[in-house]
Design a protein around this nucleic acid. Structure first.
Ligand SMILES: [Zn+2]
Length: 318
DNA sequence: CGCGTTTGACCGGCGC
DNA sequence: GCGCCGGTCAAACGCG
């Protein structure tokens, strides 16, 4: 039992905004390997990847970002403001309540989930709403890779597993989780790299529209995210985020963050990632600021490495 | 007992 | 039209 030599440490970061179709083949999210090869990446993507590559030539540190509707704007350079970026739509349905499977199969159609008792069930199982032109999932996906021997990366939320499927070409299964908070439609997908069992790929889908669950003590997450996630407006769309974040991060990382790894490891990276993702467009420097206030001395330094100094720095002019 | 996990069935999309 | 495939549901089970 014991302790395996490997601790969870930040490994990768990936962003996916959902592609329209064209762009890079059909796979929005590519494997690290593929990413590394940079066979099909956005302009600035490859740039970033390149940067990463410099640091870890043989490691897998890449993140892919794909736009959804108006994608196709490689104009944005790595050092640009990339402020335009489009953000991710914000899904058509407010709060994304109505989302859900397209026309829930429901053989008999008598069972009705209790969740979101709002108006989801609505009249008849006639798939009524359901955006017309829409196809596939609408919300942006956000994936990041973490090196860990455990999947349960504590990100501050409670998840309920609702499925598990074997991944083709991989001995490891993929698990599907959903936020247990009713009304929250956020989903999470966790799988392991088939070649690097130590690498876990977590893909988030959607955004939480509610503060982080209350209890959760015992987890660093509790002191990490509280005020952060419950911050101001859950829904504030306005800009993108990760690029800069990563850019700077890669500058400092390179070191392994070894946190007490237990069945449930709190990966600072995942925390940050999740947090930022939550606020996504709302990435106000204040947010980060809050962060650093919440940090524990020990982890503070750690976070410091991860959080782009520029963000913290910007609070100045704010 | 409440709640989360397990697991096989099932569905919609897509390619052939 | 059929089969593959990714994703989801839901009944049953297990655990505090
Ligand atoms: Zn949630």
């Amino acid at each position: 039992m014991s302790d395996e030599p490997r601790q969870p440490y930040f490994q990768n970061f990936m962003l996916d905004h959902q592609t329209t179709d064209q762009d890079q083949g059909s796979n929005n999210i590519m494997s690290f390997t593929e990413c590394l090869q940079g066979t099909n990446m956005d302009h600035y993507n490859s740039s970033l990847a390149n940067s990463f590559g410099v640091l870890s030539p043989s490691s897998s540190e890449v993140f892919s970002s794909v736009d959804q509707g108006n994608q196709q704007k490689p104009e944005v350079g790595p050092d640009q403001t990339l402020a335009n970026s489009s953000v991710s739509n914000s899904s058509s349905s407010e709060a994304g309540v109505a989302e859900e499977d397209s026309g829930k199969r429901k053989k008999n159609g008598l069972v009705v989930k209790e969740e979101q008792g709002q108006e989801n069930t609505k009249n008849g199982n006639n798939k009524v709403d359901k955006k017309k032109g829409e196809k596939k999932q609408k919300e942006p996906r956000f994936a990041f890779m973490t090196k860990s021997e455990v999947d349960q990366l504590e990100d501050g939320y409670r998840w309920r597993k609702y499925g598990q499927k074997a991944v083709k070409n991989s001995p490891y299964p993929r698990s599907y989780y959903r936020c247990t908070t009713q009304k929250c439609t956020v989903k999470k997908r966790v799988e392991r790299s088939y070649e690097d069992p130590t690498t876990v790929i977590t893909t988030y889908e959607g955004q939480h529209n509610h503060p982080v669950p209350t209890s959760l003590r015992g987890n660093a997450a509790s002191m990490f995210t509280p005020s952060l996630l419950s911050a101001p407006t859950p829904f504030s769309y306005g800009s993108n985020f990760p690029q800069d974040f990563l850019l700077h991060m890669h500058h400092h990382h390179n070191n392994t963050f070894n946190i007490t790894s237990q069945p449930t490891s709190t990966n600072s990276a995942s925390l940050v990632a999740a947090s930022i993702y939550s606020h996504n467009n709302n990435v106000n420097n204040s947010l980060l600021h809050h962060y650093q206030q919440q940090l524990v001395p020990d982890q503070y330094g750690l976070l410091q490495d991860i959080v782009p100094s520029m963000f913290l720095n910007t609070t100045n002019h704010n």
